[in-house]
Structure formats: C-alpha cells, structure tokens
C-alpha cells in the first residue's frame, strides 16, 4: 500500500534537489538561445532578418540606418541569426530580464552607402 515510502524517506534523508535561484544561479547551457543582440556597426541593413522573422518583430530601415526589434514579441527562434549575412546578430546565453513596461530595442547605425553614391561623393 505505501509503495512511495522508500522514495519519500530517501528524499527526507538526502539533500533537496532545489536550485536556490536567485541566490545561487546555475547558468544556462552553451548554445542557449537567450537575448538577441545586434552589433549595429556591422549591420548592412539588408533586411534579411526582417523578412525571415516568423514573428515579424524586427523593423529595419535601410535609408535611415535603423534596426529595431520589439523585444516583447520576439520568440527567440534564432532564425534571424541564421540568415544574417554579416553575423552581426547573435544570441547571448542569458535570458532577457523582465520588465515593467514594453521594451523596444532601437539601434541607430550608419546606413551603408551604395558604391555609386560613394563614387559620386568622391
């Protein structure tokens, strides 16, 4: 009848298996898809990430050179990281911290000039 007794007594006599988060942080595994970060200096504003994003949360303006992401709508699938041609997008190991209001990541970079324009400038 009391088949569980052995198990619970073992539990009583051994250390609990609780991870005492947030006092003791275990950390995430290598390769965890955490926060999306964009190194806007490398970004060429090609809009691949904006087109491929399943959640359509990334907005790239190639004229103004801005890269924006609705951080609350991002589903952390990593598709944008895979398609980025310059590897300026990456994902850190830490999960995105909680917030008390909506957050949008807005990054201003220098829009890449087309070769023709550059030649004209010279």
């Amino acid at each position: 009848m009391f088949n569980m007794t052995k198990n619970v007594v073992t539990n009583l006599l051994t250390k609990s298996s609780t991870r005492l988060y947030p006092i003791a942080v275990r950390g995430h595994f290598e390769g965890f898809r955490g926060t999306l970060v964009c190194n806007v200096d490398e970004c060429i504003f090609c809009r691949s990430c904006m087109i491929k994003c399943p959640s359509q949360c990334i907005t790239v303006d190639n004229k103004a050179g801005t890269w924006a992401c609705d951080a609350m709508a991002c589903v952390y699938c990593g598709v944008c990281v895979d398609v980025c041609p310059t590897s300026c997008l990456s994902m850190t190991k830490e999960h995105r911290p909680v917030a008390t209001e909506h957050q949008t990541i807005f990054l201003q970079g220098v829009p890449k000039k087309k070769k023709k324009d550059e030649a004209a400038a010279e």
């Binding site: 609350m72 991002c74 952390y76 699938c77 995105r96 909680v98 917030a99 008390t100």
Partner: peptide, 8 residues
C-alpha cells in the same frame, strides 16, 4: 499588467 516576462 504590472510585470512583463519575455521569452518563448
């Protein structure tokens, strides 16, 4: 809503 917890 008081707190938003992102992640999917």
């Amino acid at each position: 809503v008081d707190v938003y917890v992102p992640g999917c």
